[in-house]
Design a binder for these strands. Sequence first.
DNA 1: GACCGTATAATTGTATACAGAAATACAATT
DNA 2: AATTGTATTTCTGTATACAATTATACGGTC
Lengths: 220, 220
Amino acid sequence: MVRYQFGGESELSNAPMSMSLLGKLQRDILTGKYRPGQKLTEQNLCKEYGVSRTPIREALRQLETDGLVENILNRGCFVIGFSEQDYEDLFDLRKAYEIQAVKWAIDRITDDEMDRLEETFEFMEFYTMRGDLDKMLVINAGFHQVIYEAAHNRMLQKTLTSYQTFLRYQGMNMVYGPDYLTTVLEEHRAIFKAFTDHDPKAGAEAMERHINRAKERRCG
Amino acid sequence: MVRYQFGGESELSNAPMSMSLLGKLQRDILTGKYRPGQKLTEQNLCKEYGVSRTPIREALRQLETDGLVENILNRGCFVIGFSEQDYEDLFDLRKAYEIQAVKWAIDRITDDEMDRLEETFEFMEFYTMRGDLDKMLVINAGFHQVIYEAAHNRMLQKTLTSYQTFLRYQGMNMVYGPDYLTTVLEEHRAIFKAFTDHDPKAGAEAMERHINRAKERRCG
DNA sequence: GACCGTATAATTGTATACAGAAATACAATT
DNA sequence: AATTGTATTTCTGTATACAATTATACGGTC
């Protein structure tokens, strides 16, 4: 049995069913509810999310490590702003890791993971055929997630998952062209083929093309 | 006036003079005081570091985000173990980012940063001449830090700094060969030359060689 | 002796209380 | 009007208290 977990609601580990406080804060920062430079007062966040200061502070510390807020001693947390350059750069950082991920994944993937990758790709074909953009965006993220897992490196997985979260909320404002679905499908097909061919080099090249075009499209 | 901050005691932002709790925990995990799989009980850490649970918990959350511990809901924090493969992989992840860093840095470096890079390199030459390994290791980290800063990308800088911390504590157990100093100096000279030549491609190649050899040497 | 259920203890998650620092308001002074 | 010094308030940093969950110990049953 293969389970899918594309919803994005549960953040890998400790998520008590509903969206975690950390996830909510990530969302609200990345979607612009809190503006760059804005001070996040703990009291206000307590009221906003209906919890006490302790969990708020712990979430803020994680956001600090994630690089979404800056904590200045005795003065509080401030939302970090991202320039256009930062967003562009993110594609290059992601590209470097995605290429490494696919190379490792093709070498290290287990049979079970290969089954999941195949099934995920078949879902991509299905939803492309149906023209279901929303489902496609979710499956798209899932396809990459399987690769991250198959790379069998915790740090890589954490970092790329974090980038995905980042781009997911960014992508919510994007406009998707008419042939987005078919184009992206073919890009993923090339990547998937590299897995069936056990060809890390081809995988790296296909992934590089994929991310380069994603950068041009300015969406995942 | 150019100030150096190589000591590694102060972690960029909020470090109240002495080593921060987070830094101590990082050190004690990475140097093996706490073993992989070991449970970090909050009470014990309180006694160990002489603070209450609140700051301990906040530090643990940051360590979780950093990937040094795993937090299981209602069960506590456990030290994450790193395999030989993980350590090898880390060089590849670092390589990907260091190459990107040097390419951006050569494009984006300010005059002030260039002065600091030059001065740092001159210190490297001096300490190599003197055969001062300890100082050299510190300056080595500093040289890369200047590059990270010159790349002008917060995420890149955070990630690479974190890798440096990781490898620094690892490197403490390493044995350095007799020509380590001169070899490393020449590798850095090639990188530095790429900056004076404003040649990102050459910089990337020099950096790739540097990290590849570092991987062979199994130290910074 | 192995297994299971309950009671107890220990530990985590959350809320609150208190101390110290920073921001603010405001009066006095130039 | 601008500035400085002080008092007040607000907020962060830390410690502690309480609630919920998990781990442990122990006794009963097979």
